[in-house]
Design a protein around this nucleic acid. Sequence first.
DNA 1: TAGTATAGTGAGTGCTTAATCACAATAGAT
DNA 2: ATCTATTGTGATTAAGCACTCACTATACTA
Lengths: 190, 190
Amino acid sequence: MRDGTATKNKINRVAMELFAEKGVTETTTKDIAAGAGIAEGTIYRHYKSKDELVKKLFLSLYEEQGNYLHEIASADKDSKQKIADMIVNFCQLFAEDKALFTFLLLTQHGQLKEVPDDMVTPVVVLRDLIAQGQDDGTIKQGDPDLMAAMVLGVVVQPAVFHVYGRLTQDYKSFTQDLTEAAWSIVGLDE
Amino acid sequence: MRDGTATKNKINRVAMELFAEKGVTETTTKDIAAGAGIAEGTIYRHYKSKDELVKKLFLSLYEEQGNYLHEIASADKDSKQKIADMIVNFCQLFAEDKALFTFLLLTQHGQLKEVPDDMVTPVVVLRDLIAQGQDDGTIKQGDPDLMAAMVLGVVVQPAVFHVYGRLTQDYKSFTQDLTEAAWSIVGLDE
DNA sequence: TAGTATAGTGAGTGCTTAATCACAATAGAT
DNA sequence: ATCTATTGTGATTAAGCACTCACTATACTA
């Protein structure tokens, strides 16, 4: 084997899962190597440092998710449907890959501080979506940043509690409730 | 000086601020000692270990806040007013002592995992408040745990973004918006 | 004043960590 | 078959960490 991408993917996956489970600082390079079934030194054939691994992993995964979000936001639907689609997307991601979802949440937990300003994060997409909806009159007035934060909170907080075992039923079954709650924050009275 | 409470208070305050700012693992005993202007060894005259410091600090501060919450929840008011009071209380705490508020949030960030089940946390108080309101018909039906998580998300998420500089205006000025958003989730149509 | 318990000190200890490096294995190129 | 570049190894290293301990300083007691 001359191509090391399989090993690198293994490192990425294991690292992501451990970071999500224990946090970045609590996860050692030894843990990652053991989980991936490789020697500790091999990590350093693919990454200059643990810090680089963390940052590249975060950036690549976030970019991937950002693309999905961008697709949803630029679809030819009304604002209400787009916000609903975003929430469905969150719930699906959480249901399908809890480790990935939790890892992405680490940004909001201060474990990953250096988030580029121009990065496509959920809150940025949501804010633009809300501002756009305000222009065409489908979403009520208010500070788009604050409204985006509140909508995100409605979805994220149950997910956080779900991770820590407070909410035990299937997260996907919340989707309808989360969507309605989100809409009640930004939506117009009907 | 034979009484060391002044030193202990200094340790507690500095530790709380550093934990809130950098996280628990990233804060060293050396940092705390330097911040408090004492020797590293002095910390161990007051606490058996760093772990004990973290846990006692967390427990005492959370208990204090729990008492406020309990007061609010047991007041002779209707559910809507109680929820509003809780949110005002959050906003005030955040405005007055950002470090304390952020430190208390660490529990939701997985940095402090061992939270006793019977502890009076905001989500528990909220859940009971919601369940109670559902009984007397002032709050709409639905899973109280999920609803409490959503309401908390509306308040907490803006606070998180506020800490990381995304929302720059005075947090207290959100109070009205946060209260309305929270009520739109649990409240009955009027 | 002498005695004692408590509070504070900081160099030192042992352990864990991220990162290194000389070496080995592998597989395509010539 | 030999060469070469890449990938993988694991003992080793240097740094940083929580924690200790012999010692000093302080202030109350008798």
